[in-house]
Amino acid sequence: MWKTIVRRVLVMIPQLFVLSLLIFGLAKLMPGDPFTGMITPQTDPNVIEELREKAGLNDPWYVQYYHWIVNAFHGDFGDSYAFKDSVSSLIGERALNTFWLSLFTVLLVYLIAIPLGIYAGRFQNSLFDKGTVLYSFVTYAIPTFVLGLLILFFFGYKLDWFPTSGSVDVKYDAGTWGYFMSKLYHLILPGFTGAILGTTSVIQYLRSEVIDAKTQDYVKTARSKGVPMKKIYSKHIFRNSLLPIAAFLGFTITGLLGGSIFIETIFGYPGMGQLFIESLGQRDYSVITALVMLFGFLSLLGSLLSDIIMSIVDPRIRIE
């Protein structure tokens, strides 16, 4: 077990290294540097040149890369010239919002997908099953931004049930009950959009898992010793089908991060995805670089998490 985990973590190190090199290379390709924003017709070019020299921008690339990595490990990604704030505090603020949205979405995914998948598999070919299959087909095919816009249009603008942007109403103070409810209220539309898209793979997987389980020996044994059908489904099959679903968690996180760019932009939700799009509009390259690095790191972490859960759940894939 531990061997697998240690080995898997060791594999991640070269991946992280290549990722950081790739992103550093991209950052160097981006036009301008942190001082470009300070140039006005009155600035002396020599002053800028001095600043560049001091910041080490004239060093060879590997020295710059080394400084960048060391700083990144200390959580220092430089300053954002558009927001006039350090990149890490800027991202920290937004990361919390994205975290709440992701948590809410993951909870919804499992709340919706588990009953649908299990019942569809249990009553295969019933009307309910056919409906579920149709639902997962449609949600598989629909692009994130189309679903998001349709939901925003109907529930946000036409019916006017939910707010159309932001993460909290400004009239509440932090820490009060109203503040919490307002936050939750703002999460509903983006959360459901992400959840509807996230349920597809979980439902399909769970459904086929339950259908397969019906003919397996442990179910036959349980039936022959007289366990009621209801209990076989709620105890035996449920547990066995749920374990691989837990392993999906890592991939779900990775998928959510990618989707957050669309969902946060559509619903005007101030998270990391929206920050990314905003920074691109303002060519705020220090923020962009830090965000890509962070998302890359989180996706690697997501797949690591999935592999570790998988090796705990399924002893067959462990490396000995």
Partner: peptide, 14 residues
Amino acid sequence: TLPMLMLIIVFVTI
């Protein structure tokens, strides 16, 4: 495992 969408967007802008 790369954050493809973000990298594509960055490439498109630069």
